[in-house]
């Protein structure tokens, strides 16, 4: 059963991997908010150093971490190009026909690129160091207060974990069906978009049929074991906070606080300077 762990998870057994997923999840949420409050390049640099530091502690190779950025490279390119050409303000640097590039535009483009990359990096670290099951558990635990207003927290968590559990199975199934159709001479790699899409029909139909069959079987198996989503149940893996969670959480909190102070305390820069004098 070597396929249970899937997606991005990169096991190294580091401290970050062993941290409580709830703390990690909260840290990521806070981080995302924080990134939008970054004011200047120093803070972008500081956050980047922070992220790289965490990945270092997590023993995630830089190559693996940067691979996650690849998926948004298009988005980054397009948005920064748009910003570069359409932002007015500051000094006019280049004028070439209708194209005008202002200094503000360059700043906007660079900051946006940095922001998008930072937004991708840290959450990627979360998925690299946390299994999807741990994440689901963390979400369930964090959503518990919603039970008061009758949100079916447990059912939502169950749906998520079944969906997550099904992904590797469906991937394996896709693989198998693709191999079977390849053996029958199917060609998935050549031709235009339309031809490629058409070539997927012999894979998708059996995949869907299989998914429904599996869903049926699973429902039956759960029914047979008297599963009920309202029953109170215990967990196989109980999450509890430890010293490393406290330390990790505090470090994150400190970094984020610095960013906020930098944004809202006008004297912050001079305070820092005074500190080093």
């Amino acid at each position: 059963m070597n396929n249970i762990v899937f997606g991005q998870y990169y096991p190294t057994g580091s401290v970050v991997h062993r941290m409580d997923p709830r703390i990690k999840l909260l840290a990521v949420i806070l981080y995302i908010v924080t990134v939008f409050f970054i004011k200047d390049y120093t803070m972008y640099g500081a956050i980047l150093v922070f992220v790289l530091g965490v990945s270092c502690v997590a023993k995630i190779p830089l190559k693996v971490l940067l691979r996650t950025v690849r998926t948004i490279i298009f988005l980054v390119l397009i948005t920064s190009i748009i910003n570069l050409f359409f932002t007015r303000g500051g000094k006019l640097l280049v004028k070439w026909g209708v194209i005008k590039i202002y200094s503000e535009g360059i700043h906007h483009a660079v900051k946006l690129t940095l922001r998008l990359i930072l937004l991708m990096l840290f959450p990627s670290l979360l998925t690299l160091t946390t299994t999807p099951m741990e994440l689901t558990d963390a979400m369930e635990s964090l959503m518990k207060p919603l039970k008061v207003i009758k949100v079916p927290v447990h059912a939502i968590a169950l749906i998520m974990s079944i969906a997550l559990r099904m992904i590797p199975i469906l991937m394996e199934e896709t693989n198998k069906i693709m191999l079977a159709q390849k053996a029958r001479g199917a060609d998935f790699d050549s031709g235009g978009v339309l031809k490629k899409a058409k070539a997927m029909i012999p894979v998708l139909v059996p995949l869907f049929v299989g998914a429904f069959r599996r869903a049926d079987e699973l429902a039956l198996a759960m029914d047979a074991r008297c599963y009920s989503s309202v029953a109170k149940r215990t967990k196989y893996k109980v999450m509890h906070l430890s010293v490393r969670d406290l330390v990790g959480g505090l470090i994150c909190l400190a970094v984020f606080t610095v960013v906020f102070l930098n944004k809202y305390l006008w004297a912050f820069d001079s305070m820092i300077l005074a500190l080093f004098k």
Binding site: K176, A180, Q181, A183, P202, P206
Partner: peptide
């Protein structure tokens, strides 16, 4: 090659689609 070597996978009925 695939015309020369025919492969019937495990549970081949799950590959029917048309």
């Amino acid at each position: 090659l695939r015309g020369t070597v025919g492969m019937v996978m495990q549970y081949p009925e799950y590959q029917l689609f048309d």
